[in-house]
Write a protein that binds this DNA or RNA. Structure first.
Length: 474
RNA sequence: CGGGGUGUGGCGCAGUUGGAAGCGCGCCGCGUUUGGGACGCGGAGGUCGGCGGUUCAAGUCCGCCCACCCCGACCA
């Protein structure tokens, strides 16, 4: 046997993850420490993610543009918190064209500043507002500890940057995009999320308020899957983005920024994957259906391949892969495509041809079923819809099972070892720091959806008016 | 930057008291195979991380350097 199995998830979640990313050919390590090469299978998944998000961005009035990868170091220094937050992770260009540069250039870690610089030029009047621009690009952050898709030196993402007349309008935009992310996560990635506000210590450098969607991975650790920031007038003041308002007085705009990255690929792997490998949601899977023709001799081969072609054409509306490799056995192909997470497998063998049927095997559940060739497209559509819904339901149940409501701090310390804690919290930064020190759990979010009422802080016992999620995080 | 570890075909590893560089997987060719990770035969592939030293002789002993991994710190 030439098996090449994955480590089990329970044995070592981290090894399981790393090996799966490599074996499923989603990505590989780049030559520079911490960099990632996204391979075609992984990139196709990302393209499907991009398409789903881009459609939503356009539907909410945004347009795409592109900004430079290099900008002057001094741009970052214009916003005090921003430069403090980002300077330790910058890659800086000091030599170009064979000469030392007068002013160092940074490789963008995020584009608030360079976009702010341009907005100052473009925005003069309330008639120029709002500006609703999104960018698909990559950014570089010199992280000390990296992990494929989850935290890499360079990563691919989108960053939306909008400017508005009023703070209220900008806050509404911030929350609207958070909801777009949550909608994408649940409906496309089948990942249930908590929408919440970030605590002060977890806030984006330069933001007034940061919001995120938080997802629970298969090891119960939390992952921030997307963020949306209300930047107030911070960047407008730093870059002098002013406009003449309806009353003919000069005023600063209010801005937002929001981003979602290739990290979400890591989330999909860690939320849905099992010991067999990836399990991809049908709406995003590079291949929704893989067809494996099975035959023992030349005679069978010709009828099976003929039937395969009929089925392939009937499934013209789906992303279908026909695996007609002759150098590997059917059993190998089953395991191979399961590892790569294809939601639905169709087997076509001599017995199937004889009975004018195909054999179906779902990736999300064990077992097989069969369906007549006539009307196979309808069955496939219904099955993919079921898989999509089942994956979300399972992930939601897992999150529910592993989210606890500890009665006191002793219990809190226990539950955050193996799950999330949903507790009353006072909101004080020093209280949060102590919790982190003592438990390694950090405040992930203060959910937007609050029960109301009040309680006492799980850690310090002070009065608390909000519930918060604490968890160990990636 | 601290603590620990590893560097030997593409990948995973073995290599004893210093004495002819091996194994498994993968890869290539031919043939038989294909309903849960097939098999036979033949083949290709190596400056043993680098530099220096000890020795008749170094993958093996000594010194220095480099890279990578894990645990922290950073970040999310």
């Amino acid at each position: 046997m030439s098996e090449d199995r994955l480590p089990s998830r329970s044995e070592s979640f981290s090894d399981w993850y790393n090996q799966l990313v490599l074996k499923a050919e989603l990505a590989d390590y780049g030559p520079v420490r911490g960099t990632m090469v996204v391979r075609p299978y992984g990139w196709t998944l990302w393209e499907n993610i991009k398409a789903a998000l881009d459609t939503r961005f356009k539907a909410t009035g945004h347009v795409n543009a592109a900004f430079p990868v290099l900008f002057p170091m001094s741009f970052l220094e214009k916003e005090k918190d921003h430069v403090e937050g980002f300077s330790p992770q910058l890659a800086v260009v000091t030599v170009a064209g064979g000469e030392e540069l007068d002013e160092p250039l940074v490789v963008r870690p995020t584009s608030e500043t360079v976009i702010g610089h341009m907005y100052a030029k473009w925005i003069q009047s309330y008639r120029d507002l709002p500006v609703l621009i999104n960018v698909w690009n990559s950014v570089v952050r010199w992280e000390l500890r990296t992990k494929l898709f989850i935290r890499t030196t360079e990563f691919y993402w989108q960053e939306g940057h909008t400017a508005h007349e009023t703070a209220e309008e900008a806050e509404a935009e911030t929350l609207q995009m958070l909801e777009v992310y949550a909608d994408f996560a649940e409906n496309e990635a089948a990942i249930p999320v908590i929408m919440g506000r970030k605590s002060e210590s977890e806030r984006f450098a330069g933001a007034v308020n940061s919001y995120s969607i938080e997802a629970m991975m298969g090891d119960t650790r939390a992952l921030q899957a997307g963020t949306s920031h209300f930047l107030g007038e911070n960047f407008a003041r730093a870059f002098e983005i002013q406009y003449l308002n309806r009353e003919n007085s000069r005023q600063y705009v209010s801005t937002t920024s929001w981003g979602l990255s290739t990290r979400v690929v890591g989330a999909i792997i860690m939320v849905h994957g099992d010991d067999q490998g990836l399990v991809l949601p049908p709406r995003l899977a590079p291949f929704q259906v893989v067809i494996v023709p099975i035959h023992k001799n030349e005679e069978q081969k010709s009828v099976v391949l003929e039937q395969t072609e009929v089925v392939r054409q009937a499934l013209g509306d789906f992303r279908v892969k026909v695996d007609d490799r002759e150098e590997v056995t059917a059993g190998f192909k089953f395991n191979d495509w399961e590892m790569r997470g294809v939601p639905l497998r169709i087997e076509i063998g001599p017995k199937d041809v004889e009975q004018h049927q195909v054999t179906l095997s779902r990736r999300d559940e064990k077992g097989r079923s069969s369906a007549p060739v006539e009307g196979v497209a309808e069955v496939v559509q219904a099955t993919l819809d079921e898989i999509q819904a089942n994956m979300l339901a399972k992930a939601r149940e897992f999150m529910r099972e592993n989210t606890h409501d500890p009665a006191d701090y002793a219990e809190f310390q226990e539950v955050v070892k193996t799950g999330w804690a949903d507790v009353w919290w006072c909101g004080r930064a020093d209280c949060e720091a102590e919790i982190k020190q003592e438990t390694k759990a950090t405040n992930r979010a203060i959910p937007l959806d609050q029960p109301g009422g009040e309680g006492v802080c799980i850690h310090c016992g002070n009065p608390a008016t909000e519930r918060a999620i604490f968890a160990r995080a990636y």
